[in-house]
Write a protein that binds this DNA or RNA. Structure first.
Ligand SMILES: Nc1nc2c(ncn2[C@H]2C[C@H](O)[C@@H](COP(=O)(O)OP(=O)(O)OP(=O)(O)O)O2)c(=O)[nH]1
Ligand SMILES: [Mg+2]
Ligand SMILES: [Mg+2]
Ligand SMILES: [Zn+2]
Length: 749
DNA sequence: GCCGTTTTCGGCCCGACTGTTTTCAGTCG
């Protein structure tokens, strides 16, 4: 069984147990287990096969019992316990709980007292007036149930984020202008950037006090939103509506002083909140949407901002995309919370179509649109001939397109534009296995995308054979939309993503995060797995029109949920890196074998290439190599400061060789307090003291050296100290470093 | 069912809204 199927089975167990009135915490354990299975980056079947069921208990929240049940599901595809539960409670009875407001207790009562077996029988019972006679039920309840049966079919339906976004923007516009609204923020799964949302959640700051009249103006306006079918509930602080489409929108009003705490609460996820609140409790604190309170004397200690709330319990303010109770708490504790990628980090788009196949924009229109959007390079990747519906390209038409691209590049160059168009192709992996175009054509391309569009119903073995064959093909750069899923429409074909990732590791290939809001493929969990394995991700629009380029932001959201940082994504790189990769014989640089090398080895490699290039008189290649040495050193410096607990590793003195360390403002943000500055001949590290200008380059009296061994470092004991960051020491160091007159002659740490 | 530098037993997040309740249970966020 796949992880997804295992999770669904555990979910069902939880529902059935809940219906039977089992211990709620036991029910939670199953739900929690299901969530963990969904979030697991590896196939659990593989884990069980390799290491046995025991190994599953390494997953937080999975103990001996759940491990055995998961193993049973994974290997046999069935679970004895689930079969028994199903025999006791028919599926049609479970369907009763899909009626809004109907939980396990009410459903069980109806089943027991009235013998209701299905939604149809429930409707009949309501219409016969039998429901209102039950204890705990009344006329109103009966009416609500009857009306709710209509919604049962749509229960659990989710809306794609991009579609939700359109509604959110309209809702915000609708609410704007209400005087009582001081601040407002869409929260919930929408704010977390989840690929689909179950409902919309809007938080409103209504000012210093929760005056009933003020709140009423907000709620009245909310109730007048276009397409409101029904007001589900309306109280003193919150209100819920349902639109004609069935989509629910929740509104929550809070006073200003609680806005931060409320935003923390309303952003969720539920599981994240439970963890936060549990941790607070262990510290003698209580967290709710109203604020953070001391349990002992009920004094309020935080609530204005989210930062404050998290800080009160010793946690960093997590980016909303990470608040899923996956790895974020462990990462925070290890000081390894990622600095997430942003849309502005993307410099290129490496998957798009033109009117030569099924795109609507011409080559030149796509180029203009990409430039207008601030991109620095694109790859044109039209379909290959197998995609007859799109009038896919054969070798001749492809080569003709490449001639045109050459022309465009020449024009760009003449214009002085720093923009490059790459000659690419989205080549189908044929049903039988081979690539759709001959090897000699593919070898000429700058960028080859392999896609599996046909034969998606083949068995796993065949699918994997095709995918792995493509990855092993020497000209293929990347696999596009690797699972083939269409959100809410079509499940992925039968692919074992871990094997695909492993093959990419072996062959130095890349994987796509297709940013089309219907695809988002690879998804967050798989992207995280790729990152863990060291496989770079390419976020691509797969645009079929100029406007199609704008979907990149959805891809970035998904990437952020995966915890990807700027350099985990291949197309955040400047195009000159690309050239540098070719110059240094390392294309694509981001290949795993290369990435896994210690930085010192990389520098040694570039040094050798640099010398060789000089000997050959190839100044351009030499310059690239020189630049790479600079970047590598910069990377080392940056890594050292990214983590709170890390001390500078292996920086030691050794004269003799200097290079251009170029750390531009746009490449390294000066968030830390140390920046490296380009010198004429030598290097210096300078403290970043706010007013410090990067343009202020000076010849440094300092030498910086990269050491391979800590032992080489020890001889500098007299001036180096291990340094662990904390606020007070940082401040002291900052002061010392600001006093330029008295700088030491060497830096290291 | 899971979990453990205050626990191997006894906890497991906390609050709002509804309906029917004479004091709170059920459901939901
Ligand atoms: N503390 C706490 N907060 C909750 C609970 N349930 C929901 N919340 C908070 C966190 C959620 O993100 C937020 C909105 O609730 P929703 O039911 O709309 O969930 P969410 O938006 O996360 O996902 P969705 O896509 O709507 O299913 O309310 C809960 O049981 N406890
Ligand atoms: Mg929601
Ligand atoms: Mg909601
Ligand atoms: Zn495409």
């Amino acid at each position: 069984m796949t992880n997804r199927e295992i999770a669904a089975a555990l979910e069902e167990v939880a529902d059935l147990l809940e219906f039977q009135g089992a211990n709620p915490f036991r029910v939670r354990a199953y739900r929690n287990g299901a969530q963990k299975v969904k979030d697991a980056p590896k196939s659990l079947l593989t884990i069980v096969g390799d290491s046995g069921a025991e190994a599953l208990t390494a997953i937080d929240g999975v103990g001996k019992d759940l491990a055995e049940k998961i193993a049973e599901l994974a290997t046999s595809g069935t679970l004895a316990m689930l079969d028994e539960l199903r025999a006791e409670v028919p599926a049609s009875v479970m369907a009763l709980m899909r009626v809004p407001g109907m939980g396990p207790k009410k459903a069980a009562t109806l089943h027991k007292e009235l013998g209701v077996q299905s939604l149809d029988q429930l409707r009949a019972a309501c219409e016969a007036g039998e429901v209102q006679k039950l204890k705990g039920f009344g006329k109103k309840t009966e009416e609500t149930i009857l009306a709710g049966i209509e919604h049962a079919a749509k229960a659990g339906e989710r809306v794609r984020w991009a579609d939700a976004d359109a509604i959110v923007q309209r809702l915000l516009a609708h609410m704007d202008g209400v005087e009582a609204i001081k601040r407002r923020e869409p929260a919930g799964s929408y704010r977390r950037g989840k690929e689909t949302v179950g409902d919309l959640d809007l938080l409103v700051d209504v000012g210093a006090t929760m005056d009933a009249k003020t709140v009423a103006t907000v709620m009245d306006r909310f109730g007048e939103f276009e397409g409101v079918a029904e007001v589900i509930a309306r109280g003193d602080t919150k209100m819920s509506i349902r639109l004609d489409s069935g989509l629910q929108i929740d509104l929550r009003c809070v006073p200003s002083e609680s806005f931060g705490a409320a935003l923390q609460y309303f952003t969720g996820s539920k599981e994240h909140n439970v963890e936060v609140r549990g941790r607070a409790k262990a510290r003698g604190l209580k967290v709710s949407e109203w604020g953070v309170f001391n349990t002992a004397d009920d004094t309020r200690i935080a609530g204005d901002t989210e930062e404050e709330v998290y800080a009160a319990i010793g946690l960093p303010c997590f980016p909303p995309e990470l608040r899923e109770n996956r790895q974020e708490f462990a990462a925070a504790e290890a000081g390894e919370l990622p600095r997430l990628i942003e849309l502005s980090d993307l410099r290129g788009d490496l998957h798009m179509h033109t009117s030569a196949t099924d795109g609507r924009g011409t080559l030149r229109e796509m180029v203009a649109a990409a430039r207008q959007r601030g991109l620095e390079y694109i790859a044109i990747t039209d379909h290959s001939k197998r995609v007859t519906m799109a009038h896919g390209l054969d070798a001749d038409r492809l080569r003709a397109q490449w001639k045109e691209i050459d022309l465009v590049n020449e024009e760009l160059q003449a214009e002085g534009a720093e923009f490059v168009v790459l000659k690419g192709i989205e080549c189908d992996i044929l049903e039988a296995g081979p690539m759709d175009l001959p090897d000699d054509v593919l070898a000429e391309a700058d960028w080859v995308i392999a896609s599996l569009h046909y034969g998606q119903n083949q068995p796993r073995a065949k699918i994997m054979e095709r995918l792995l064959g493509a990855v092993a093909h020497p000209s293929v750069s990347i696999v596009a939309h690797p699972t083939g899923r269409l959100i809410g429409k079509r499940a992925s074909y039968d692919v074992e993503v871990n094997e695909l990732i492993a093959a990419c590791v072996e062959h130095g290939k890349l994987l796509e995060l297709n940013a089309n809001p219907m695809r988002l493929d690879l998804d967050d969990v798989n992207c995280a797995a790729a990152k863990a394995a060291g496989v770079p991700i390419v976020i691509s629009s797969d645009a079929h029109s100029t406007e199609g380029l704008d979907v990149l932001r959805y891809g970035v959201l998904q990437a952020r949920r995966a915890g990807l940082e700027q350099w985990d994504v291949f197309n955040t790189r400047r195009f000159n890196f690309w050239e540098a990769d070719k110059a240094s014989g390392l294309f694509p640089r981001a290949s795993v074998a290369w990435r896994n090398k210690p930085v010192t080895e990389k520098i040694a490699y570039f040094l050798a290439r640099h010398r060789a290039a000089l000997t050959k008189g190839d100044n351009k290649a030499a310059a690239f190599c020189k630049q790479d040495i600079g970047y590598s050193i910069g990377w080392l410096v940056e890594q050292s400061f990214k983590k709170d607990k890390v001390t500078w590793p292996n920086v030691w003195i050794d004269g003799g060789w200097y290079t251009n360390l170029t750390i531009g403002k746009d490449r390294w943000t000066a968030e830390g307090w140390l920046v490296a500055v380009q010198g004429q001949e030598k290097w210096r590290l300078a403290p970043f003291v706010g007013q410090f200008q990067l343009s202020e380059t000076t010849v440094s009296p300092y030498k910086i050296d990269i050491g391979l061994r800590p032992s080489a470092f020890e001889k500098h004991d007299e001036w180096s100290i291990p340094y662990t960051r904390d606020a007070s020491r940082d401040e002291a160091l900052r002061k010392a470093l600001a006093d330029r007159e008295n700088w030491p002659t060497h830096f290291a740490g």
